[in-house]
Design a binder for these strands. Structure first.
Lengths: 214, 214
DNA sequence: TTGACAACCTAATTCTATTCGGTTACTTGA
DNA sequence: TCAAGTAACCGAATAGAATTAGGTTGTCAA
């Protein structure tokens, strides 16, 4: 069942007629399931419905193939994020929206998330990839939010935006990785509000309790 | 230079006479430098000063070898942590000590840290390893600290210890991984106090600013 | 002094990524 | 319309690395 070729896509929506796309989808499944080392070109090619040699027409090799997986996902993320933050007033509200939107975005593509969070993070060559430039743009949004909140007085004046970002991103990554390693057996949204609440408390100016949901 | 066999250890301290230990040290260096995929048994065996086949006398294979690397490091961590927290009064003080001690512990063994944080985290089989049970013990300490702080009133009453732990660990991991990927080119302690300060603020009871260093 | 066994080794073997050298079918310019 | 070019693909090598087979050597206890 997990190995039925993608060419026979279920209901007409998973029918990537384009070979390159088909290979990427197959690779996503195989890398997500087995990890880089145990994934084989043979299995990917079988799943994509072309010969092993055929893969090398589209990708330079196994690593290049894996590095290509997040391209679409990341590019679309940047557009979608902008759209979702548009019109939201206040840094704290933007931050909350960022969190919920991002978590849902990850939840929707768990296979891509597995590749990105479990196998690409911690891979030096990922940093030199063109898609990583997009990741930086993406993370840059967070910095803007923290700076805005500082300027507006919503956040404490001595806030270090880089520190705030480390905490925010680190926490999300930790939660996501745990969820992926536990095979997505529970909801990614469990305790999310409490987590946001606690981080937000650390951002607020002294004596200001508006962030607390108490 | 990086390939001089470990058998000729520098000044008398790096002279693991025990073959198994020698292999583990060699493997740590090679895995840390090249990552799992590009690390070769050939290089490890050369560095350890025995044949490739010899490695299989001590380890079941390449993966088993990598999974063995953190054993000593983690076991010693648990003992040392206990020792370092002993006699410290107050949950917040314990938490700060935990942070500083842990960061220094990581800084001292950057090669092991590389293997653990970049290659083992995100590896499902690591979860089934006996050493992972120790990791859980280690993380359990943090839970106790959060619970103690809640009980004593140092931390907010509605604190969720698991949430607090996610934030704390996630942040550390994020910082460490960034540092490792940037080839340890700066100090791991940069901004550490600001980071602790901000997390601590999120833990404090409403209206209590004692955690702030302002 | 001999038999068992631990610690190693060299030389296969096997598994996979990658490359080579086509074939096929479609496009395009004369 | 046809021939040359080319994009997409394939089966069969090749090459590189992990793992296994089948010893050899040296030590030690009965």
């Amino acid at each position: 069942m997990p190995n039925d070729p993608l060419v026979y896509g279920k209901k007409g929506e998973n029918l990537p007629t384009d070979t390159r796309t088909r290979v990427i989808r197959a690779a996503t499944r195989v890398f997500a399931e087995h990890g880089y080392q145990k994934a084989t070109i043979a299995e990917i090619s079988r799943l994509a419905g072309l010969s092993e040699a055929g893969i090398y027409e589209y990708f330079q090799g196994k690593e290049d193939l894996m590095l290509t997986i997040p391209n679409v996902w990341v590019t679309e993320a940047i557009e979608a994020l902008e759209e979702h933050l548009f019109g939201i007033k206040g840094a704290l509200n933007k931050l909350r929206k960022f969190l919920y939107w991002y978590v849902r975005y990850i939840e929707r593509e768990p296979l891509v998330a597995k590749v990105v969070f479990l196998h690409l993070k911690g891979n030096r060559s990922f940093l030199d990839t063109p898609v990583y430039a997009n990741v930086k743009t993406f993370y840059g949004q967070l910095l803007s939010i923290f700076e805005e909140g500082k300027k507006s007085g919503e956040f404490r004046q001595d806030l270090n935006p880089y520190v705030a970002r480390s905490i925010f991103l680190g926490t999300i990554e930790h939660i996501v990785i745990r969820w992926l390693l536990k095979d997505m057996s529970y909801s990614l949204f469990d305790n999310l509000e409490a987590t946001f609440d606690q981080i937000a408390t650390g951002l607020a100016p002294a004596g200001d309790d508006t962030a607390r949901s108490t």
